[in-house]
Each structure stands twice: as C-alpha cells, then as structure tokens.
C-alpha cells in the first residue's frame, strides 16, 4: 500500500467521522442530504459483501466494518434520532436518476458477470455520483455550514488521492482497474467546482455561500 492510498483512506474516514460528530454534537442534521447518506450506505453494503468471501488484511477488514457501521449510524441519526431537524424539503434530488442508470451500467460494463462482481461494479459507479443530492441541496439553499464544507472537502480529497494512488500503482506495479479509475475521475471532477469555492471562501474564514 502506498502513501496516497493510505492518506486517501484516512481522509475518507475523517470525512465520515466529521459528519457523524457534527450531527451528534449539534443534535441536528440540518443541511445534510439524507439521500446522499443512504446512497453511501448502499455503496458500502454492495461493495463490502466480499467481507464474507475474501480475506485481504486486518486493515482492510477493519476499515470496511468501520465504514459500514458509521454510514448506517449516520442514516439512523438523520432518519430516526434527529429526524425533526432533517431538511427534507430541500433534499429533493431524484435518486432513481442515479440508481437506475448506474445499476444498468454495472450489468453492461463489469470485470466479470457474477452477482458479487456486478454489485461491486454498481457500488463503484454509484459512489461516483452519490454526492450529487448533497451538492444539489447546497446549491438549492445557496449555502453550507463550515463543517459540512469540511466534510465535502475531505470526501473530495479522498478520491483525488486515490487517483494518485492509481497512477502510482500503474507505474510501479503495472496494476490498473479501468472501472475504478474512470468512475474515480468522474467522482473527482464533480468535486472540482466545490474545491474552488472551498479554497476561495471557507479557508478564508467565510461561510460557503453561493452567488445569487
């Protein structure tokens, strides 16, 4: 495992925990898209079914379990514990526009036509677009709380570091996984506009608000 990959995993973990803590400490999930969080829970569930079939390393197993546990806890906080603070009126992205095309694509373009492999591929495609309901919500309300911005930034950094990890692996190991790379590129591009706003506004101590 190279440094890019490890730092990528850490920033992913940081993003997930940051969001959990934000909701827990403020006792509120205002401004957070429950739909994006459900999609991430689906992504982790579909991808990490290999926990039952394939042991890779203790690190790998622990991270997978933590990701799944945290993402389900987040969904539970939003839809159950702090339901009253959930901003459902602004969380109006139609998720079927993401789930249906990515499911169809997973059937058509995959490494192997087996149930686990199709689910893995589906999770890769779905992850690349799962943040869209959240970004849509931010654009609809025109602003995001600073912690929410940090969350989105850490999540974007994670996929960007994975891109460097893939360049590294291709160069030194001759390994590449085209499905993961193309989906990872799409995912990173979706964050670009947000990166710009984050650097020009949030890092200068301002709240992220979009021009009217």
């Amino acid at each position: 495992m190279n440094l890019f990959r490890f730092l990528g995993d850490l920033s992913h973990l940081l993003a997930i925990i940051l969001l959990l803590l934000k909701i827990w400490k403020s006792r509120s999930c205002a401004g957070i898209s429950g739909k994006s969080q459900v999609l991430f829970a689906v992504v982790f569930t579909a991808r990490y079914l290999d926990l039952f079939t394939n042991y890779i390393s203790l690190y790998n197993t622990c991270m997978k379990v933590v990701y799944i546990a945290c993402s389900f806890t987040t969904v539970w906080l939003i839809y159950s514990k702090f339901k009253a603070t959930y901003d459902g009126n602004h969380d109006t992205f139609r998720v079927e526009f993401l789930v249906v095309p990515t499911a169809i694509l997973a059937f058509l373009v995959n490494h192997d036509f087996t149930p686990l492999e199709i689910l893995w591929t589906f999770s890769i495609y779905l992850e690349s677009v799962a943040i869209l309901p959240q970004l849509f919500m931010v654009s609809k309300t025109g602003e995001a709380e600073t912690i929410t911005s940090h969350y989105l930034f850490a999540l974007g950094v994670y996929r960007t570091l994975y891109l460097f990890n893939w360049i590294w692996r291709y160069h030194f190991e001759g390994f590449f996984d085209l499905i993961a790379i193309v989906a990872g590129l799409v995912q990173t591009v979706l964050y670009c506009d947000f990166f710009y706003l984050y650097i020009t506004k949030v890092l200068k101590g301002k709240k992220l608000s979009l021009p009217a």
């Binding site: 992913h12 991808r47 890779i56 990701y67």
Partner: peptide
C-alpha cells in the same frame, strides 16, 4: 485477471 477481481482497495 484475478488481481483485479480481488479488490484490495476500499
């Protein structure tokens, strides 16, 4: 390819 199907990344 077996290495791709192992999915050692998160």
């Amino acid at each position: 390819q077996d290495t791709i199907l192992t999915h050692d990344e998160l």
